[in-house]
C-alpha cells in the first residue's frame, strides 16, 4: 500500500513536467510490451477479416466474382422472410440453454468428486476425460447412430421397461436431444478447468473450517463455490459461446444437412450451407454478424450479472 502511494505521488510530480504524449507512452509502455503479439494477431488475423466480413455482409458475394453492394438486403431477408434462419436460431437456443447447464453441472460435480479422496483418482479422471478426447469425430457419429438408432442399444434397454422402439436420431422431435446428450457427455474440458480451479483454493481454508466443525456441504457452499466463482463464470461464458457456435456435432453426426426436418439445423451449420454449398457468402456474413450480436448480448448480460456473484481475490 505504501509503495503504491509513493508511486502515485511521484507520478503526480511527473505529470507537470511531461507532455501528454509522453504521459500516454509512459502509462502504456509496459502494457504494450506484453500486448504486442496479441495486438498484431488481433489486427491482422481478426480485425481485418472481421471488417472484410462486415463489408461482405452488405453485398451479394458468390466467392468467385466481385461482391455487389446490396445495402441491408441480406439482413432484411434474414429477419423477415427466411424460415430456416428462424428454425436454426430456435435449434441453437435450445441446444445452448439445455445443453450447457447440463454439461456444466456434470463437469462441476465430477470435478469436486474427483478432486481428492477417491481411490484410483488419476485413473478415473483420465477415463472421464475419454469422451472429450474423442470429440465429435467420425467414429462417434457411427456410434451415436448405433446407440440411438432403431436397432440401437438404447431401444434394447428401454424395451425392458416396455417402451416401444423409436429411431431417436431420425425422429425430428428427439434428434436434437441426442446431440444435447453428446454435449453433456463430453464434459471433460470444463471439468479439467474446474479441477485446475479447485487446486488453486488454499487448503488451510478447509482446515480452519474443519476446526470450526463445518460439514461437507457447508464447506462446499461456503468455501468451494465462492472461491471458484471466477472459474464457474469462465466456464459458463466459454461454453455458452462454444455452444452457440456448435458446428461439428451437426456437420459430422447430424449428416450435414440439419435433418431430419431441420431439427438439427444449427445456426453455424446453416451459415456453412449458405456460404459453401449455396455460394452466398454475403448472406452468410450477415448471419455471422447477427450471431455475433446475439452472443454478445448474452455474454454482456452474464458480465453484468457477474458483478453480483463472482468474487475475485482482492
Amino acid at each position: 500500500m505504501q509503495a503504491e502511494a509513493l508511486e502515485r505521488e511521484s507520478a503526480l510530480l511527473n505529470v507537470k513536467k511531461e507532455s501528454a504524449g509522453r504521459r500516454l507512452w509512459n502509462k502504456n509502455k509496459v502494457a504494450l510490451l506484453f500486448l504486442t503479439p496479441w495486438l498484431i494477431g488481433l489486427i491482422v488475423l481478426s480485425l481485418i477479416p472481421m471488417i472484410a466480413s462486415m463489408y461482405l455482409s452488405f453485398t451479394h458475394y458468390d466467392m468467385f466474382n466481385m461482391p455487389k453492394w446490396t445495402g441491408f438486403d441480406n439482413y432484411i431477408n434474414l429477419l423477415t422472410s427466411d424460415l430456416r434462419f428462424t428454425q436454426s436460431l430456435k435449434v441453437t437456443l435450445k441446444y445452448v440453454f439445455i445443453g450447457v447447464p447440463l454439461q456444466l453441472i456434470m463437469a462441476f460435480g465430477l470435478a469436486v468428486v474427483l478432486n481428492r479422496g477417491v481411490r484410483g483418482l488419476s485413473g478415473f479422471r483420465a477415463i472421464y476425460y475419454v469422451p472429450s478426447l474423442l470429440g465429435p469425430s467420425l467414429a462417434i457419429a457411427i456410434l451415436w447412430k448405433q446407440l440411438f438408432g432403431m436397432d440401437g442399444i438404447i431401444n434394447e434397454f428401454l424395451s425392458i421397461f416396455g417402451i416401444a422402439p423409436n429411431s431417436w436420431v431420425a425422429d425430428p422431435s428427439t434428434s436434437l436431444y441426442t446431440l444435447i446428450i453428446l454435449l453433456a457427455w463430453q464434459f471433460g474440458s470444463p471439468m479439467v478447468i474446474f479441477l485446475a480451479g479447485l487446486k488453486q483454493i488454499p487448503t488451510d481454508l478447509y482446515e480452519s473450517a474443519s476446526i470450526d466443525g463445518a460439514g461437507r456441504f457447508t464447506k462446499l457452499f461456503k468455501i468451494t463455490i465462492p472461491m471458484l466463482t471466477p472459474i464457474i463464470f469462465f466456464n459458463l461464458v466459454m461454453q455458452l459461446i462454444n455452444a452457440f457456435q456448435a458446428f461439428t456435432p451437426a456437420y459430422i453426426i447430424g449428416g450435414q444437412t440439419g435433418g431430419p426436418l431441420d431439427s438439427t439445423l444449427f445456426y453455424n451449420l446453416y451459415l456453412y450451407i449458405k456460404a459453401f454449398t449455396e455460394f452466398q457468402m454475403g448472406y452468410a456474413s450477415a448471419m455471422a454478424w447477427i450471431l455475433l450480436a446475439v452472443i454478445a448480448a448474452f455474454t454482456g448480460l452474464l458480465f453484468l450479472l457477474a458483478k453480483k456473484w463472482v468474487h475475485y481475490e482482492s
Binding site: L42, P49, L56, M287
Partner: peptide, 18 residues
C-alpha cells in the same frame, strides 16, 4: 471487448479473408 469479439465471430466468415 475486442478480444471477446474475436472469440464470438463464427470462423467460417473470417476463413476466406484469412
Amino acid at each position: 471487448a475486442l478480444m471477446f469479439g474475436s472469440i464470438m465471430l463464427p470462423h467460417d466468415v473470417v476463413l476466406i479473408p484469412q
